[in-house]
């Protein structure tokens, strides 16, 4: 789950490191849930040429009208620093938390995976789903829809295995993440 954290190099102030290493960071952003906020965030990324690997958003505090946006992005340490500073500059943004540098955290994604097949392939898909702890949530005589939650790598692996067994369609939520331990954002 903290694969992302270990993959990136240690935060280093050495100038040489800044030029070269591209790191993957998961950033949680707490925002006022108001019209246009998602457009502000997405526009910031496209306008300044930053990468978005995944982005999820939903209201997390209905009383205070706060939404939480989880962004997975890639960039050099200097770019990551810029991304956080630029996000923090948006008026409706309350907090920007880089989970990747903030210590251990948990990342999860939910995926719905449709597989079509009959006979042995159909049985095999069900067997693998069982191993991966994916649940069949819909079934016809020649198809399944599996629901699974897990790390990116786990979902990627499952999808890869489903390909020869009749993979039809995939829908994924993108990463949601939260820091480990007893402290909140």
């Amino acid at each position: 789950m903290s694969a992302a954290a270990s993959r990136g190099s240690k935060p280093s102030k050495a100038k040489e490191a800044i030029v070269s290493t591209v790191e993957r960071h998961t950033i949680a952003v707490l925002v006022d849930n108001e019209p246009g906020i998602l457009a502000r965030v997405v526009g910031l990324f496209s306008g300044r040429g930053y990468n978005i690997e995944s982005l999820t958003v939903s209201e997390t505090d209905a009383r205070e009208h706060l939404s939480r946006i989880t962004i997975v992005t890639r960039g050099t340490p200097m770019i990551i620093e810029q991304i956080k500073a630029q996000l923090d500059r948006l008026v409706p943004v309350h907090k920007v938390n880089d989970l990747t540098v903030g210590g251990p955290h948990v990342e999860r994604e939910l995926a719905l995976i449709k597989v079509r097949g009959t006979g042995e392939k159909r049985v095999e898909s069900l067997r693998i789903a069982d191993i991966f702890r994916a649940r069949a949530i819909d079934s016809t005589i020649d198809s399944f829809i599996f629901e699974m939650t897990g790390s990116l790598d786990k979902i990627d692996a499952f999808i890869k295995l489903m390909e020869p067994l009749g993979l039809i369609e995939v829908s994924r939520t993108g990463v949601v993440a939260i820091a480990r331990g007893n402290q909140g954002l």
């Binding site: 100038k15 200097m78 810029q82 500073a85 630029q86 923090d88 500059r89």
Partner: peptide, 11 residues
């Protein structure tokens, strides 16, 4: 005054 100005072009 703007943290995003710092370390943008020059460390």
């Amino acid at each position: 005054i703007d943290p995003s100005s710092i370390n943008k072009n020059v460390r």
